[in-house]
Design a protein around this nucleic acid. Sequence first.
DNA 1: TCCATATTTCGATATTTTTCGAACTTTGGC
DNA 2: GCCAAAGTTCGAAAAATATCGAAATATGGA
Lengths: 101, 101
Amino acid sequence: MRHARLPASDEIALEDVFHALSDPFRLEVVRRLATEGEASCQALEGDRPKSSVSHHFRVLREAGLIRTRNEGATRMNALRHEDINRRFPGLLSCVLAKQED
Amino acid sequence: MRHARLPASDEIALEDVFHALSDPFRLEVVRRLATEGEASCQALEGDRPKSSVSHHFRVLREAGLIRTRNEGATRMNALRHEDINRRFPGLLSCVLAKQED
DNA sequence: TCCATATTTCGATATTTTTCGAACTTTGGC
DNA sequence: GCCAAAGTTCGAAAAATATCGAAATATGGA
């Protein structure tokens, strides 16, 4: 299983991050990873088919928002909290702020 | 000329804002409005046709990022700085931060 | 080795956006 | 009233994304 591209902290592009976060499902995944820590893909899938979930995780990964590591047959996803904060201070906090509306 | 929808400050949706900012041209427009103040559409158009420029301004307007007022035959666009900061503190500052690389 | 679990990848279709020309609207000036 | 300038709207075509089933991969057992 070849590892998907993972941009270095300095290479994270704001446009890509914004695009990744413009989808409700992906935004929700980011919020849950932020509050719950690591999670497998299936732990966060709604009722979507695996291939759709995989697609969304890939978008998040390629945008530089999450990192994925293997844990047995499972893949654990984690928010790149430090990297994102270093690159775009304030972004995450505003994504995670009081989520009511 | 009917006025385009302009979400109230409390109705600005994060997903919409992210989508609006995920386009390079629109992100640039927001940055320029932030640093240069108001501007007409044509002052910011690159070499795109009017209809494309108009489309992008509409996306920004409907997302709640800019406000447009008539000034004679011209329409002046301004960033909704206060509204955005109130609704999503930290967002604008991270869009406007050191824009290198 | 054979299996089940957990994804990823592929391919095709559906949906959404973007792009741009042409026609239309509004405003100010002559 | 007529014209030019500045945008907007409409409609169609191109491009980018999303969706999802089926087949392929990887890992840890029995």
